[in-house]
Amino acid sequence: MATFPDNLSYTKDHEWLRLSGDTAYVGITDFAQQSLGDIVYVELPKVGDTFEISDPFGSVESVKSVNELFIPVSGEVLEVNEALADAPELVNNDPYRDGWMIKIKVVDTTEVDGLLSAAEYEDFVKE
């Protein structure tokens, strides 16, 4: 069964966001990693890249498929998870912690209010 931590915000594209002040960590949800299966490659942006809300910022590849990643809110990339280059399976094993993908500086924190809560996202994926 997929987990849906309460302290995160979610998108309908199956990304999560964890806000802390005006910075946030972004990754894909437990539901997403289970649907994708074994993840073999994660393509991430460079530090300093900027994205508008919902822009594609990278991709995640399983054995069978490629899926684009969409940024939950507008922001500038402060850090990328370098560990995923050699250990993409971290996304499968620990999607909400060690499997994080990027850390961003959030341009407008009110955009976070437009994201789904854990309960809303759980309802969404169960439909």
Binding site: G37, D38, V40, S62, V63, K64
Partner: peptide, 9 residues
């Protein structure tokens, strides 16, 4: 069936 436990396993 496309996969059961995971393709790599």
């Amino acid at each position: 069936p496309v996969t059961y436990a995971g393709t790599i396993d």
